[in-house]
Simulated scan of single mutants.
Amino acid sequence: VNVFFVLSGLTVAASLARCRNSLDFIIARALRIFPGLIVCTIVIVASGLLLAECGVANYLKDARVLEYMVKTISLSTGAAELPGLFRHNPYPSVVNGSLWTLKFEFLCYLLLALMGSMRLLTPGMMAKLLPIGFVAAAAFLAYRHGGQPDQIEQFARFWLSFSFGVALFLFRDRIVLSWGVAVGLWAAMWFVLGTGLERTVAPIAIGYLAVVLGTVRLRWLRHATNKLDLSYGVYIYSWPISQAVLTAWPDVGTANLICLSALLAMGIAALSWRLVEKLSLNARKQVYDLVTVPLLQIRLSR
């Protein structure tokens, strides 16, 4: 999850730099998250008609179906339940647990957009703000070390990871990517494991290594991923697919579960990219015009 937020900060900061303004950026981020999530939610609810143990009639009239859709699409939780679904699995009744980080992700987008609108995302300003933010987050996480992380602690960790990714983009001409530094950061991470500094050092060490690995030249892989982005589809479909496999095949075994779930998730993610996510992103200009033209007309009328 730390790597996810570091890479998200890096790529999303690059996206903001290409956008016309913060509104354009928010529209782009919303189109990246919500259309795919809405379709995924509908697919899962429809699948419940086949998988739920309570019967079709009881399933359809249960208030938890609508509650699941509202909670999932609003990003309020990833632990919403559907009636009669996955009750006997190792994680009983958790339909799509992976989604719990999405609300933090979108909140990071909003904060980044706010910083961009305030013209704070310049190397000069960030050279002052980032150290303050890192020290504050590190002190807070160290102080809260040892207990069960709450929502505030999770956001502090994720914002630290995300802002580190933003820094990697803003200072890309100055930051040296080397295996030696990566090994040194990993050594530091292992040294602080189990201490109050772990949740500060780990995102930096793991995120930096991920970026260094990204410099490895695998042209065939880069060519494939530039055409077909499976990342989000795999993220939103993998958990319910694993739960469905366990329901249909309780004795599947760990290795078979991982392989079968991965293959199914990548196949469905490819469909999600082609039929939903890519089309949504291509509609970005039209959505931006749809939002801004009425605003401009109201402003001119005044």
Score class of each variant (00 low, 15 high):
residue 58 N to F: 08
residue 182 A to Y: 05
residue 148 Q to C: 10
residue 101 T to N: 06
residue 189 M to H: 06
residue 237 Y to E: 00
residue 297 Q to Y: 11
residue 133 G to C: 08
residue 124 G to S: 03
residue 260 L to Y: 00
residue 198 E to D: 14
residue 254 T to W: 13
residue 59 Y to N: 07
residue 24 D to V: 04
residue 56 V to F: 12
residue 15 S to A: 13
residue 104 F to Q: 07
residue 122 T to D: 04
residue 170 L to A: 09
residue 142 A to L: 08
residue 115 M to P: 00
residue 123 P to W: 02
residue 114 L to S: 13
residue 42 I to R: 05
residue 90 P to M: 06
residue 237 Y to H: 08
residue 122 T to C: 05
residue 195 T to P: 01
residue 65 V to K: 07
residue 67 E to Y: 10
residue 204 I to V: 15
residue 35 P to L: 06
residue 138 A to T: 15
residue 164 F to W: 03
residue 236 I to V: 12
residue 56 V to C: 10
residue 263 L to R: 02
residue 280 S to H: 09
residue 256 N to P: 00
residue 107 L to A: 15
residue 92 P to M: 05
residue 113 A to S: 08
residue 37 L to E: 07
residue 177 L to A: 10
residue 7 L to M: 11
residue 5 F to V: 10
residue 23 L to Q: 09
residue 39 V to W: 06
residue 268 I to F: 13
residue 294 P to Y: 08
residue 214 G to Y: 02
residue 148 Q to S: 14
residue 158 F to C: 12
residue 112 L to V: 11
residue 70 V to F: 11
residue 35 P to A: 05
residue 53 E to H: 14
residue 187 A to G: 12
residue 146 G to E: 09
residue 234 V to R: 01
residue 84 G to P: 04
residue 37 L to R: 04
residue 35 P to F: 06
residue 120 L to F: 03
residue 269 A to S: 14
residue 77 T to Q: 04
residue 149 P to D: 10
residue 162 F to V: 10
residue 251 D to S: 12
residue 193 L to Q: 12
residue 122 T to L: 09
residue 301 S to Y: 08
residue 267 G to I: 09
residue 38 I to T: 10
residue 128 K to M: 10
residue 115 M to L: 13
residue 145 H to W: 14
residue 142 A to S: 14
residue 292 T to S: 12
residue 165 G to C: 07
residue 14 A to F: 08
residue 246 L to K: 03
residue 143 Y to T: 09
residue 194 G to T: 07
residue 34 F to P: 04
residue 293 V to R: 15
residue 80 A to F: 04
residue 247 T to F: 06
residue 12 V to N: 01
residue 9 G to Y: 01
residue 151 Q to S: 15
residue 283 A to E: 14
residue 74 S to F: 00
residue 84 G to Q: 09
residue 295 L to C: 13
residue 197 L to D: 02
residue 12 V to Y: 01
residue 207 G to T: 04
residue 128 K to Q: 11
residue 65 V to Y: 04
residue 28 A to S: 13
residue 290 L to W: 15
residue 40 C to M: 14
residue 268 I to H: 00
residue 261 S to N: 04
residue 9 G to R: 02
residue 294 P to I: 09
residue 217 R to E: 15
residue 116 G to H: 07
residue 262 A to T: 15
residue 22 S to L: 01
residue 17 A to H: 09
residue 298 I to T: 12
residue 32 R to K: 14
residue 98 S to P: 02
residue 192 V to N: 03
residue 254 T to F: 14
residue 270 A to P: 04
residue 59 Y to Q: 03
residue 295 L to G: 15
